[in-house]
Amino acid sequence: MGGGRVAGVSALDVRGLTYRYPDGTAVLHGIDLHVEPGERVAVLGPNGAGKTTFVLHLNGVLTGTGHIEVAGLPLSPDTMREIRRRVGVVFQDPDDQLFMPTVADDVAFGPANFGVTEPELGERVRAALSAVGMAEHADRSPMHLSEGQRRRVALATVLASDPELLVLDEPSANLEPVARRELAEVLLSLDRTMLMVTHDLPYALQLCPRAVLIDNGVVVADGPTRDLLADADLLAAHRLELPWGFVPQP
């Protein structure tokens, strides 16, 4: 798995996506995004821009109006299960994601739901946990891990399902510098189409050649990450800021 790429079919195609939460808050106002297979795209934007809300649409967990297509398969109630197998979402808050009694059980939850059985299941769990450097914690309770460790396990739970499109909501938050770098190495080694929501602009630059900027529920900029980050006026207009002293090489 992992590939399944058909020439000419884009990895993700979103058109005119709008969404309003049940309490009436209108969040997305017509998002358009087109991602080619193998691309790594950073999704930037201030707090409350609608990034998380957008991400939750990609595997049909929220359903707004508009059109979403994953590797040529339009999202609909009938295709939901297949879409969820193809799209792996690592949630912003690992506490939402982890709940089984042990780390290994939690990592096995996704693939088991998608019908993977032993011995492949155990193999996937081991591989996913070593990819994030958590193999020795397999039998501990996720509740007893530190925040950064939980974040890594949360990533492993999704890696184990071997999705074609990997969606990460702020993967580097709360990671120590070394873990942050190691995570980057893991992600770069995956060779997978990837969408990464982040406030960590240098990280976006390191990992994603392309970036889109979302504010107020629409895409306001889309282009090479380097160009976006070099546009000081654009960043300022959308409450984004490079770390002090960080100057992207032109």
């Binding site: 967990v61 299960r81 949630f91 939850f109 739901n113 739970t157 999704v158």
Partner: peptide, 13 residues
């Protein structure tokens, strides 16, 4: 609600 979404996202049936 978020937990439920996370479970659905991993194919919970």
């Amino acid at each position: 609600e978020r937990v439920h979404r996370a479970m659905l996202a991993r194919g919970w049936a």
